[in-house]
Design a protein around this nucleic acid. Structure first.
Length: 277
DNA sequence: AGTGTATCCTGCAGGC
DNA sequence: TGCCTGCAGGATACAC
């Protein structure tokens, strides 16, 4: 998916275009991205006004009048695309799943090729309860090196698995886990509780750096990701290890390796990221 | 508390 | 050209 930086970029983009819009129609074209029957979903939206757009973990939250939240999880290929008027011809998204029509004549389309994404209309309370399950936001002011040090010390999971677990830390996915671990010099298979406190503190810094830099670059486009203006992110060319197996490491020249575990590819530099230390 | 595997789904790249 | 396999930014459920 879109990970934290991509969801943040989309939320920021939407904030400038859809806040203030009043929803006059909601059409579900692919009901499997909902978690409830579409007959119940659509009526909940009509007549509501968009009051804000936020991000939590990898979710884009569209705040609605009447204390409702349209919670969008983008899955692997989800996009949120606003248009001033209904798109025609070439500009029409290829896999529209939900289409909101605004009083202004504009539309917001949730498009999702693989349909791993979800769209839910919840009360603010329902969302808040859901959000309790997420770990801390890595870019939050209150997130300190010590929080990561202590979190890692309590787990025997491989560090990459730890970082991908949304209950432990929110918003980190496979790309940024790989990049942060590279920059901190930690092998993705290293047990979390074997990461030394000073390494964990370094990882806290590299995580925040890489996530922040990626937001400033507008996210990473591997293939499908687009921001709310339909544009690609610029961070892909700054990746050190993700998707670069076989390439020489930018630091030491060793060939980047790919290794599969927990069902996903892990990318790392065998020279810079020792399995133990 | 972990891992491995499977599942949801479409598209694309690579091998033959 | 086509057909096949494997893989993809995520999340979840299951057996072990």
């Amino acid at each position: 998916m879109p990970e934290l930086p991509e969801a943040e970029t989309i939320a920021r983009g939407l904030r400038t275009t859809v806040v203030g819009e009043r929803i006059v129609g909601a059409r579900v074209l692919r009901a499997d991205i909902l978690r409830e029957p579409k007959r119940r979903f659509a009526p909940k939206l009509r007549g509501r006004t968009i009051t804000g757009v936020e991000r939590r973990a990898k979710n884009v939250l569209i705040r609605l009048s009447g204390d409702r939240v349209l919670a969008v999880n983008l899955g692997m290929t989800g996009r949120l695309l606003p248009f001033r008027k209904p798109p025609r011809g070439r500009t029409r998204p290829g896999h529209p799943a939900v289409r909101l029509r605004f009083a202004s004549g504009g539309v917001l389309i949730f498009d999702d090729t693989r349909r791993f994404g979800t769209v839910e209309c919840l009360t603010a309370d329902e969302w808040n309860e859901r959000a309790e399950r997420f770990g801390p936001e890595p870019l939050g002011d209150g997130y300190r090196p010590d929080d990561l040090v202590r979190g890692l010390a309590r787990s025997r999971a491989p560090i990459r698995s730890w970082l991908l677990d949304q209950r432990r830390i929110a918003g980190v996915g496979n790309i940024y886990a790989a990049e942060a671990l590279f920059l901190a010099g930690i092998h993705p298979r290293r047990r979390a509780d074997q990461v030394h406190p000073q390494e964990a503190a370094a990882l806290h810094g590299t995580l925040r750096d890489v996530l922040g830099d990626a937001i400033r670059a507008g996210g990473t486009t591997i293939r499908d990701y687009r921001n709310a203006d339909g544009e690609e992110g610029g961070f892909a060319r700054r990746l050190h290890v993700y998707g670069r197996d076989g390439d020489p490491c930018s630091r030491c020249g060793s060939a980047i390796e790919r290794d599969m575990f927990a069902g996903r590819s892990a990318f790392f530099c065998p020279g810079c990221q020792p399995a133990s230390s």
